[in-house]
Amino acid sequence: MRRQIGAVAADLQRGHGVDLRCGVTVSSLEGDGDGGCAAPTCPTGPPSTPTWR
């Protein structure tokens, strides 16, 4: 049941334009000037291109 709920929540976020990535550590978020997030900062470098789509 947890995977199903997680899948629904992930689809909801992606449906609103969120680039959701699981298992990625984020150390800070850079703002876009309009109150949104422009880019994450990751300690290991930029997150790789997602393979889930």
Rank of each mutant, 00 (worst) to 15 (best):
Gly33His: 00
Asp34Tyr: 09
Gly45Glu: 15
Arg3Ala: 06
Gly15Pro: 06
Gly17Ile: 01
Val24Met: 04
Asp11Gly: 11
Asp19Gln: 13
Glu30Gly: 03
Asp34Ala: 08
Arg2Gln: 03
Gly23Phe: 00
Thr41Cys: 10
Ser27Val: 05
Ala10Arg: 11
Ile5Tyr: 12
Val8Phe: 11
Val24Trp: 09
Glu30Asp: 12
Thr44Trp: 08
Val8Arg: 12
Ala10Glu: 08
Gly15Val: 07
His16Leu: 13
Ala9Asp: 10
Gly17Cys: 07
Ser48Val: 08
His16Arg: 14
Asp11Gln: 07
Gly23Gln: 01
Thr49Asp: 13
Asp11Cys: 10
Thr25Gly: 08
Leu20Val: 01
Thr44Ile: 07
Gln4Asn: 12
Val18Thr: 15
Ala38Pro: 05
Asp32Asn: 09
Ile5Gln: 14
Arg21Asn: 01
Gly17Trp: 02
Pro47Arg: 02
Ile5His: 13
Met1Asp: 09
Leu20Glu: 00
Pro46Ile: 05
Gly35Lys: 00
Arg2Cys: 02
Ala9Trp: 02
Pro50Ala: 13
Ala9Gly: 02
Asp34Ile: 03
Arg14Gln: 10
His16Asp: 12
Arg14Lys: 11
Ala10Pro: 06
Thr41Met: 10
Thr44Glu: 13
Cys37Pro: 04
Leu20His: 01
Ile5Pro: 09
Ala39Glu: 15
Val24Gln: 03
Arg3His: 05
Thr49Pro: 12
Ser48Tyr: 12
Val8Ala: 11
Leu12Pro: 02
Pro47His: 04
